[in-house]
Amino acid sequence: MQITVDIEKCCGAGQCVLAAPDVFDQDDTGVVVLLDPTPPTSQRTAILEAATLCPAGAIKVGA
């Protein structure tokens, strides 16, 4: 699984951190930080939830 985040789009709502805290965090400026760009498949559901909930559409999930 390949995850990308668009820090220009990120609006700092924090939805991704709530949905998948092992994969996403917010830095001191409140913008998304990808903790693990190639997370294990066990994280798949949580990551898809984060991508769905992101109000800015800043999270892309590849194969």
Partner: peptide
Amino acid sequence: YRRMLIPELTVK
């Protein structure tokens, strides 16, 4: 302007 405020209200 939003970016000035988001550090204050992050999950952390």
